[in-house]
Amino acid sequence: MGLIKKLTSITLLSGLILLLSYQDANAYLDPATGSYIFQLLLAALLGAAIAVKIFWSNVKHFFLNLFSKNRDAGPDQEDDD
C-alpha cells in the first residue's frame, strides 16, 4: 500500500507541474476552464487507479468463485448496475 501511495503522490505532483505549465494564451474560456483542465489531469491518475482496482477485483473474484458455490455474486452488489 505504501508503494501505491508513493506512486500516487509522485503522479499527482507531476500532474500539478503539468497544471502549472499551461501558459499558452490564445482563446478565452469561461471560469469553468480551471475545472475542465483539472479534470483532464485527474483523469489520467484515476483512470489508472480504477484499472488496478478492477484488475484486483477480478483476481479476487476468480479465486472466490473457484472456492465458493455462489458463482453469481458480482464484485460489488450495490454497483451491479
Binding site: 497544471l19 494564451a25 490564445n26 482563446a27 474560456l29 471560469p31 480551471g34 483542465i37 480504477i50
Partner: peptide, 21 residues
Amino acid sequence: SQSRYADRKIKSIQRKMSKQA
C-alpha cells in the same frame, strides 16, 4: 486550478479523456 484559469486566456484544449478515466 479554477482560480489559476479564471481570467486567463488559454489555447483551446485538444486533450481527451477515456471512458475508463
